[in-house]
Design a protein around this nucleic acid. Structure first.
Lengths: 106, 106
DNA sequence: TCTTACGGTAAGTGTTGACTTACGGTAAGT
DNA sequence: ACTTACCGTAAGTCAACACTTACCGTAAGA
């Protein structure tokens, strides 16, 4: 059920930009906020959401709060998505067999 | 960039329930609306969003509008997610090597 | 044609949530 | 101790959106 929070978190464009920036490596809040069109407190709030969704993790280095991608939430999301992927492939296969009934294999 | 719409579409809980129901096979709008705590027009609106996101496809059977899962949007989402998956694994591997420096393998 | 089942669209409402500014709290330098 | 840099939280505002009811079009059966 945790994938719900992850999807909600990644639905926001600003949060996606933060998450994509984190893909290049761990970053403190200030670095993340620089270059984004929103204020630093906004970034803090977004990071909180991402963290609660299990998508990022926090690590303190003195006064700095360094964030990085958390594989946990990512894995849950992938697992959930793969269910549909398998179902979709089965449906596609069935569709092909149904539509192209004129030619039997072997 | 299409994955953005897909994520936005799947962020809504009601839309997720519709999408998950479609996993068991194609369904007309009425069947989808039955069992959900919202009205049928609401389901129609949700299906429109899912369709524009490339997550479902529509097929008419007389007066019925039968919806099914569209592999297109699903594939784009998976591809996008896999980028982070790879990055996260790399980071995890680097973290292990950094933290557990005391013991060398082999 | 009249009716019934099916479903998409319009218009309006209420709530959620993304953003802002202002403030408080901790760590490091002088 | 004072200052500066870093960051999280509180409170308030505004727009997006999920939902409703009402309405309109289309397909099939009588």
């Amino acid at each position: 059920m945790a994938y719900g929070n992850a999807l909600t978190a990644l639905a926001d464009p600003t949060r996606r930009r933060i998450f994509e920036r984190l893909r290049k490596g761990p970053r403190p809040v200030g670095k993340l906020a620089a270059g984004l069109p929103v204020s630093r407190p906004a970034v803090s709030q977004h990071l909180k959401v991402l963290k609660e969704a299990g998508l990022v993790q926090e690590e303190r280095e003195g006064a700095r709060h360094v964030y990085s991608i958390d594989p946990k939430g990512l894995g849950q999301l992938r697992a959930w998505l793969d269910q549909f992927w398998d179902s979709a492939l089965d449906a596609f296969r069935a569709e092909v067999e149904r539509t192209a009934g004129k030619e039997n294999s072997k």
